[in-house]
Design a protein around this nucleic acid. Structure first.
Lengths: 148, 148
DNA sequence: GAACATTACTTGAATAGTCAACTATTATTC
DNA sequence: GAATAATAGTTGACTATTCAAGTAATGTTC
């Protein structure tokens, strides 16, 4: 494909271009939708990570949200002082800090998910379920492939 | 779909999950690949924006890279003092600052594109051209749809 | 054409993220 | 089981980003 070379190369046929672009707009829109709820994108990522599981360690959340550990420590400290999450050392291993949602955090999470669903609905309006499934499949593949 | 609700919801069937996740890993890998060239992801975005066009305004670059204007001002100032870009006021409208690559910037750009191509190659290894084309099509659609 | 509005960017203070170094706890080795 | 290593997280100095307010140039309106 020779992207960036002197030969003919159409940026619009380069998936990284679209993935970056889409991701940027998605963040813009989420940021906008989260503002009235009093949340930011970093906090939304934590809420996403805590969706299915009851309690996760700081590292697990950082890994899930693809953020660095010190960054996640500080995001969670902020959320803790905002009363959104609670932190307790894990009984079986006192090194790990287990994070869980407070009732207040769960309420914020529900609002955030509602906002995300509204954005999702308009983004994928008119896209068939089959196309969404293919997209997920392909994204899973390339997400696996990209790491080294 | 009711993502985030109490009903059964599989995160892995939610495209935003994969898009966020992929995007995060892509940035991790680009960051890693750019480090030896002495560039960061922010600068890479500027180089991407300046790829096809000769000169762009600071706003145009910010828009293309989906970054805020003050952020872009500072990124470009940094790149200017690193000798990667040159800034000149547009003759027809002295308000706009036109940015263009210096020879040094072009060299850095070529290296960065080479790194990006290596990542692209391993990421899309085994993915058919037809699937890449469908992906691009769908991403173009949803990128258009997501902005309100 | 003077007054006001808009655009394009810049700057400074405040906030957020990152790297390197540190503490505390658990695992391993001899 | 004491010494060392590894893991999980935190902290502080540094850098980057952001918001709000500012400047300068261009457009618009009366």
């Amino acid at each position: 494909m020779d992207a960036g070379g002197e030969t003919d190369f159409n940026m619009e046929e380069w998936p990284f271009y679209w993935l970056t672009r889409f991701s940027g707009r998605y963040l813009q829109q989420m940021e906008l939708a989260l503002k009235p709820i009093g949340l930011d994108v970093a906090q939304w990522r934590v809420l996403m990570a805590l969706r299915d599981r009851e309690r996760l360690s700081v590292s697990e959340i950082a890994d899930h949200a693809i953020a660095k550990l010190p960054t996640m420590t500080k995001i969670i400290k902020r959320m803790e002082s905002d009363g959104l999450v609670a932190c307790t050392p894990r009984p079986s291993d006192q090194r790990v800090t287990e994070v869980s949602l407070t009732p207040e955090g769960e309420a914020a999470s529900r609002e955030a998910w509602a906002a995300a669903n509204r954005i999702y609905a308009r983004t994928f309006e008119g896209v068939s379920a089959r196309d969404v499934a293919s997209l997920n499949r392909l994204l899973r593949t390339i997400t696996r492939n990209i790491v080294l």
